[in-house]
Nucleic acid binder design. Structure first.
Length: 273
DNA sequence: CGCATATCCTGACTGC
DNA sequence: TGCAGTCAGGATATGC
């Protein structure tokens, strides 16, 4: 569910609400929530530490613990991070709860499908070195993007989804980016002209920036919520995602749904090439 | 290397 | 109303 814009929105919420607070206690109840290390180890390393800063790389979110270690979180398909009063009822699938000294709000990790995870690691984030460039946090120019595409026979959809190449783009934003760039998802990457690479570069920046400004996308199931439990607004600006049969906002042709790179992919068959 | 498939799960939705 | 089947924003392993 959450892609770069949603994770960035949650990161900003944690920055505003919990940075500067000292962890009073950590409760891990989900059996799969902490799986790279014993849950007790995470509890011990986090308890007593101050949330000193936040960061994001692709879809991974992290919090500095005393500026000495990092608490890394990934929401995967259904994870939510929520700031709620400690007295509030816990919803089903609440797998982790962080309480803080002098902060009336606690941080809860809720994840029905249990694909999400938490772990504590070093500030150099060795688990994240495999990730490719972050299109928002890193300065990625059109030439750098062109080098990532060069010589690859893989299609654009698979490439945009490959976290080892570009980190943070998921199924919704890949489709929205490719529509904006007027490029088909099944187009082999190495066939792009310089001007098409430039268009793709502009579309990545524009779509992700607009989606962050809109605080992310909440689909019909309302599963994505920000730290305050509020829905995002970027779904109102979607041009292709989940719009099969509806008219293209650029040329009027019916949007179609294909499977590309094993994922549902929406595109305009007339104005994407 | 690239690609399809299966897998980890729960829940919402569809069609009978 | 119930029930089976399908699908879902992600990431990874496997086999061809």
């Amino acid at each position: 569910m959450p892609e770069l814009p949603e994770v960035e929105t949650v990161r900003r919420g944690i920055e505003a609400t919990f940075v500067g607070s000292r962890v009073a206690s950590v409760e891990i109840t989900g059996v799969r929530t902490v799986r790279r290390q014993p849950a007790d180890e995470l509890v011990m390393r986090a308890t007593g530490s101050v949330f000193t800063r936040t960061g994001r790389r692709g879809k991974y979110l992290w919090v500095g613990l005393d500026d000495a270690e990092a608490l890394v979180m990934h929401l995967r398909m259904s994870g939510q991070l929520l700031a709620v009063p400690a007295s509030a009822d816990r919803v089903a699938h609440t797998h982790a709860v962080f309480r803080f000294e002098g902060n009336p709000l606690e941080l809860r990790f809720v994840d029905p499908r249990t694909f999400g995870e938490l772990f504590v690691t070093g500030l150099d984030l060795p688990e994240l070195v495999r990730l490719g460039v972050d299109p928002i946090a890193d300065r990625v120019g059109p030439k750098a993007l062109g080098r990532l595409l060069a010589g690859r026979s893989t299609n654009l959809k698979a490439l945009l989804l490959d976290q080892g190449v570009i980190a943070g783009i998921g199924n919704i934003y890949a489709d929205e980016i490719l529509w904006r760039a007027a490029l088909r998802p099944d187009r082999p990457a190495r066939t792009l002209s310089d001007s098409e690479v430039a268009k793709l570069h502009r579309a990545i920046k524009a779509i992700l920036t607009a989606a962050i400004d809109a605080r992310g996308s909440s689909l019909a199931d309302q599963q994505y919520r920000d730290l305050e439990g509020e829905a995002g607004n970027y779904q109102l600006s979607h041009r292709v995602h989940a719009r099969a049969g509806q008219p293209c906002r650029r040329c009027g042709e019916s949007i179609v749904k294909l499977i590309v790179a094993g994922r549902s992919s929406y595109l305009c068959p007339r104005c994407q090439y």
